[in-house]
Design a protein around this nucleic acid. Sequence first.
DNA 1: GAAAGTACTATCCATTAGGAAACTATCCTT
DNA 2: AAGGATAGTTTCCTAATGGATAGTACTTTC
Lengths: 120, 120
Amino acid sequence: MKKKAVINNTPACQVRMQAISDTMSILSGKWKFHILGTLIEGDKFGFMDLMREIDGIGNKMLSKELQDLELNHLVSRTVMNTKPITVEYAITEYGATLSPVINELAKWGIEYRQSVHGAK
Amino acid sequence: MKKKAVINNTPACQVRMQAISDTMSILSGKWKFHILGTLIEGDKFGFMDLMREIDGIGNKMLSKELQDLELNHLVSRTVMNTKPITVEYAITEYGATLSPVINELAKWGIEYRQSVHGAK
DNA sequence: GAAAGTACTATCCATTAGGAAACTATCCTT
DNA sequence: AAGGATAGTTTCCTAATGGATAGTACTTTC
């Protein structure tokens, strides 16, 4: 019997799978979506603001994740020369292109909750 | 100075963040999106088909992830009583509701590739 | 001058994720 | 009887994730 051929090895599928890998590697970790979601909702946030907004995150994680996001140009970091030095984090124009992704994720999660609580 | 109030603690934001957590906890791990993406593209797949389709995955991981997905009713598993026993994995109707999420993820990843290769 | 707020960094530690390899078990073909 | 296909499970090991705690450094307020 001939070995069954691979089905989805068309260029389109390869590209699609690669794209999903890319996105997920950039957005990996427990907190990236929370941070981006928060930043998209608001305007500018200080480090401590984000600590308060994102329930449960520790300062090490927040710091590390923000650096990751900054490296990928999804988040901007601006040091203000205020009295006690403050830093302003904001979503970049590029980071804002993730809105549809995050919205779909949130939408699905909400429907998931309903399907679990409701008819099941 | 009064402590700055938390900004995004409106019910809508809470629900949104909770929803993102829910979705990501169900879709956690390195392979879930790949498996779902593959299953959505095709019709029915045997275990070995999936091994061949999903480049790099090991049998332990595939087995574990499929069990997870089955538990959450995203994937169906049907044992066929064929000569050498075969199993058919397919996306469920419910699992198919993840298409928009996966499509947005893939779309963003493709644009990301272009922005890195192109103007930057 | 002590406390408290700003923004972190560094260290330690435990859990988890995930890869490699070997193994079980059944069936068909040669 | 051997080889290869089906579909996994089990064991072992390492690397990454991420939480808790403490410390740095500067400034303002009490």
